[in-house]
Amino acid sequence: MGFKGKLIASMEIKCGGHLFHDFYQINAHHVSNISPDKVHHFNIHEGDQDLKVGSIIGWKYNHDGKVKVTKQLIEAVDDEKKLITWKVLEGDTLELYNSFAITASFEENWATWTLVYEKKTEDTPEPITLLSLMIDITRDLESHLHNN
């Protein structure tokens, strides 16, 4: 039996949430250009450039001072609520967690990241530094979207 958890962080953003939502659906491949110290590479394993439910994507990123990889399935997209959910299929995250899902909601002027996970052991740390990474990338994207 695993140990389930949920972490949520919300932050006010200067530009409309629709810009973030559209960015992650259409221009996710540009995250590595906007935040190169955090994200090194993005690729699409299955699906088209315009990401939809069922698309499988991959990221190479910096986390806790190490280069890591993840492969994710886009599980849900709600254009009205500006919400996207990714389920981790493979990668470094699953070394510590039995399951891991990330939901991003970009309603109005708020970005909310929700991590839902099941730790492999009770001693496995909460993924607070991973949530912090998401917040830092959101700040980078906000700066890019607000200035363009």
Rank of each mutant, 00 (worst) to 15 (best):
N109R: 10
L131P: 04
F20T: 02
E80V: 14
K87H: 07
H21N: 06
W113Y: 09
W59H: 12
N109D: 08
L94S: 05
L89Y: 02
S143F: 06
H18M: 05
N62L: 10
P127E: 06
F20L: 04
G65R: 09
E12M: 07
I135A: 10
I84Q: 01
D64T: 03
L83D: 06
S55F: 00
E46S: 10
F106Y: 14
K87C: 09
S35F: 01
K120C: 02
G58N: 02
V31T: 15
L89C: 06
G65V: 12
D48F: 03
D37V: 02
I135D: 02
H144R: 07
K82V: 01
L130I: 05
L115H: 06
S55D: 04
E75A: 08
I8E: 15
W110H: 09
Q72M: 14
I8S: 14
D37T: 15
V116R: 10
G91C: 08
G16R: 12
E12I: 00
E12W: 01
V67W: 06
D22A: 11
V39Y: 03
H21G: 09
E142M: 04
T112M: 14
K38E: 13
K120A: 02
V116S: 14
Y24A: 01
W59T: 04
I74P: 01
T114E: 13
K87F: 03
L51N: 00
A104P: 00
V77S: 08
L89S: 03
E80H: 13
L89V: 03
E142A: 04
G58R: 07
D37I: 02
K38S: 15
I44N: 04
S132G: 15
T103Q: 11
A9T: 05
L141F: 03
Q49M: 04
D48M: 08
L141R: 01
T129Y: 09
I44P: 01
N98D: 08
Y24M: 09
T138A: 15
L89Q: 13
Q72E: 15
K81S: 09
S10K: 11
K60M: 08
S143A: 14
G47S: 06
D79Y: 08
H18N: 12
F23C: 09
P127A: 10
F42S: 06
N33R: 07
H21R: 05
L115Y: 09
L133Y: 01
N62I: 08
E122H: 05
D37A: 10
V53L: 07
A104E: 14
K87D: 08
Y97S: 00
G58K: 04
T121P: 00
C15T: 15
